[in-house]
């Protein structure tokens, strides 16, 4: 099986099949990442399309010095950032909370109690998913990116540091703070 870097090289030489293979491998995770970053399905689709367009436009400058996925997530993160900024400026619907204010946490959701936080016992319903996505949006963008890239996308601290252009120690700190904030917020709605 060809590596992502080899497929990029083939695409640069004019292979449509190479790009289709790259797309097949990564489009789901790009859409999921964009959804978790923006908290909105329509925006996630739009952003994910933009990610692949940017990958195609930047193919001629791609250097296989780092993993393709690291490069791809760098583009994906910047793209979603642009979307969020544009929406913030336009006053559109996607919530961007920098400090956690303006949240309506407890809405009587049938969520499991603290003793039931066993991952296998959590019934991950749509309501809980919405609350979790909302909690993610309430994180500072830098913390959210670091946490998602590591926990959802499987990048190492080192790779997250590359994507975010920060130190590994800063990654460690951001992920810890993201966890603390999420646990605090979700603990608030637990019965």
């Amino acid at each position: 099986m060809r590596t992502d870097a080899e497929l990029m090289e083939l695409y640069r030489r004019g292979s449509r099949d190479a790009f289709e293979e790259l797309f097949a491998r990564h489009h789901r995770r790009v859409i999921h990442f964009c959804y978790r970053m923006t908290g909105d399905q329509a925006r996630a689709e739009e952003a994910a399309q933009e990610v692949f367009l940017r990958i195609a436009r930047a193919a001629s400058t791609y250097q296989p010095t780092a993993r393709f996925t690291t490069w791809m997530y760098t583009i994906a993160r910047r793209t979603t950032l642009n979307f969020l900024r544009d929406e913030k400026e336009d006053g559109e619907k996607v919530p961007i909370h920098d400090n956690g204010e303006g949240r309506d946490a407890a809405e009587g959701l049938p969520l499991p109690g603290p003793e039931e936080w066993d991952p296998e016992r959590i019934a991950w319903g749509e309501q809980l998913k919405e609350k979790f996505v909302e909690a993610l949006q309430n994180l500072p963008e830098g913390h959210r990116s670091a946490f998602l890239l590591n926990r959802a996308e499987g990048l190492s601290y080192d790779e997250v540091a590359t994507v975010l252009n920060i130190t590994v120690q800063a990654v460690k700190s951001r992920i810890f703070r993201a966890r603390e904030a999420l646990l605090t917020e979700l603990s608030g709605i637990l019965k």
Binding site: R36, Q41, W117, P119, I122, K129, R179, L183
Partner: peptide, 23 residues
């Protein structure tokens, strides 16, 4: 520690959907 691990599971279950005409 248990809650931290649970958060990791929760985030992987939070997925967008891939529309059929996306490609």
């Amino acid at each position: 520690e248990k809650r931290m691990r649970a958060l990791g599971v929760a985030v992987t279950r939070t997925e967008g959907s891939v529309p059929p005409d996306f490609r």
